[in-house]
Amino acid sequence: MSENKNNKKNWPLWEVFVRSKNGLEHRHFGSLHAADAEMALENARDVYTRRNEGVSIWVVESKNITASNPKDNGELFEPATDKVYRHPTFYDLPDEVKHM
């Protein structure tokens, strides 16, 4: 939580996730400042769903999110590119085989 010049605590930052309709996942919509979770929900409603953009809102304090570092993208994601055998097209089958 940051402090302003009078050493007072500022409202922390929250990340907002909205489910736009049932059947879809919650998606990151943006962030906002609020004193607590309840206010973050109320503010999220006003800031991000003024036109029926959602049926459900999640808020989580930004400091509680652990993010991967783009610098590690090589180690993290490249091994996945190597493993072609994880994809169906890797396997040779005769054309006569149907429905597979």
Partner: peptide, 23 residues
């Protein structure tokens, strides 16, 4: 006018991702 407040808030929080505080 409420929309304009919203626009300001979207943009402030987008700016904060660059490492500057709202304050």
């Amino acid at each position: 006018v409420q929309d304009e407040a919203g626009h300001g808030l979207y943009l402030y929080s987008a700016t904060e991702t660059l490492g500057i505080s709202r304050e």
